[in-house]
């Protein structure tokens, strides 16, 4: 007969422990950290390029660009004016984990940072399980994708606090309906904050910039 030994252990407890440590380092300094997740090609890098162009002079922005291969996204962010950009090449891994963030964190001067964007690997499944120490996950979806994606990937939309619908300029060129994606997303997560914008035309971006400004100011205020 075999003997059973109780062992209650979260498999991701080590990741969660490191994420908590990252979070504490960021919280202590009042840094807002946003974990950007989406399918490949939804516009995470484009959104960050636009955000840098608009806010680089008023906010101190750090960027972590995760990719399975190449540092192309990090290069784009440097070209867009990013002063503190660190690439993470996962070499095949489908998500970033907290250990990868903890490893690049010392490369940033945290005392000289307002905002940290973490661009996750393009993937709507795996990154949802891995806490990186962020304030919130921001999920992007573009109008060239299916508007039922919130239902297909409920875990990601459930664990995100914000949904950004990108490529508003292409609305009408496919069967994607804004009303439907909103309805589907709210069915999964009633509290999801939603922005609709186009990184190409700039439509709707101002509201996003304002939100970023306010969120940074709010966090600074709490610290002061």
């Amino acid at each position: 007969m075999d003997k059973q030994i109780a062992l209650e252990r979260k498999v991701l407890s080590e990741n969660d422990r490191i994420a908590a440590d990252v979070r504490a380092q960021l919280q202590d300094r009042g840094i807002v950290a946003l974990n950007l997740v989406s399918s490949p090609g939804s516009g995470k890098t484009s959104l960050l390029e636009r955000t840098l162009a608009a806010l680089n002079d008023e906010l101190r922005i750090g960027l972590v660009a995760g990719d399975v291969q190449t540092e192309n996204d990090a290069d784009r962010l440097l070209k867009a004016g990013g002063k503190m950009v660190r690439p993470i090449v996962t070499n095949g891994a489908c998500h970033l984990d907290a250990k990868m963030i903890a490893r690049v964190l010392p490369d940033f001067n945290l005392d000289n940072l307002d905002l940290l964007f973490i661009e996750n690997v393009g993937n709507l499944v795996c990154p949802s399980s891995f806490d990186l120490g962020e304030d919130m996950k921001v999920v992007l979806i573009s109008t060239t994708e299916g508007d039922d994606k919130p239902l297909k990937y409920p875990s990601m939309f459930r664990r995100s606090s914000m949904m950004i619908v990108n490529k508003l300029d292409l609305l009408g060129t496919s069967d994607f309906k804004l009303g439907r994606v909103t309805e589907n997303a709210r069915q999964i997560n009633h509290d999801l904050q939603i922005f609709e914008l186009s990184c190409r035309t700039g439509d709707g971006l101002e509201a996003w910039f304002d939100w970023v400004r306010e969120t940074v100011a709010e966090k600074r205020g709490v610290l002061a």
């Binding site: 030994i5 209650e8 252990r9 979260k10 991701l12 399980s129 459930r158 509290d191």
Partner: peptide, 18 residues
């Protein structure tokens, strides 16, 4: 819609048989 998921997201080790 203000609900908290209490169960269904876990990845836990519960026991070992030896």
């Amino acid at each position: 819609g203000s609900i908290r998921v209490e169960q269904g997201q876990e990845i836990d080790i519960t026991h070992l048989s030896v």
